[in-house]
Simulated scan of single mutants.
Amino acid sequence: MPKTQLNVRVDADTARAARERAVARGMSVNRYIEELVRRDAGEQGRMFVDAAADFMQRYETVFAEEFGPETEGRRRPVE
C-alpha cells in the first residue's frame, strides 16, 4: 500500500514519549503511530459490537415478547 505523508504537531513531552515507546518496542516512530491508529480504529469497531450485544441482551425479552421464538430470524409481516 502506498504511503501518504501526514504532518502533525505535538508538544515536546508527547514527542519524547512517542520516541521512547517506539524505541522500547524496536520500531520507528512512524510505525508506532500507525499501529496506535490501527488499534484505535479496531477498538471503535469492537466498541460498536459490544454495545450492540449489550443492547440485544438488555432487550432480548422485549423482542421475544413482540416476535416470539417461532419468528426468530424472520421479519414480521407488515399489517
Rank of each mutant, 00 (worst) to 15 (best):
1 M>C: 01
3 K>I: 00
3 K>D: 00
5 Q>Y: 04
6 L>M: 11
6 L>Y: 09
7 N>A: 12
7 N>Q: 10
8 V>L: 14
9 R>Q: 11
12 A>T: 15
12 A>S: 15
17 A>W: 10
18 A>C: 06
19 R>I: 01
19 R>M: 02
20 E>I: 08
23 V>H: 14
26 G>N: 08
26 G>D: 10
27 M>I: 15
27 M>K: 07
29 V>N: 00
30 N>C: 14
30 N>A: 15
31 R>K: 07
31 R>S: 02
33 I>D: 04
34 E>K: 02
34 E>N: 09
36 L>D: 01
37 V>E: 02
39 R>S: 04
39 R>P: 00
40 D>T: 06
43 E>R: 12
44 Q>M: 04
44 Q>G: 06
45 G>C: 01
46 R>D: 09
46 R>Q: 13
48 F>Y: 06
53 A>I: 11
53 A>R: 14
53 A>T: 13
54 D>Y: 08
55 F>I: 14
56 M>S: 10
56 M>I: 08
60 E>W: 03
60 E>L: 03
61 T>S: 14
62 V>Q: 09
63 F>V: 05
64 A>Y: 01
65 E>D: 13
66 E>A: 14
66 E>P: 00
66 E>G: 05
70 E>D: 15
71 T>M: 09
74 R>E: 13
75 R>H: 05
77 P>D: 08
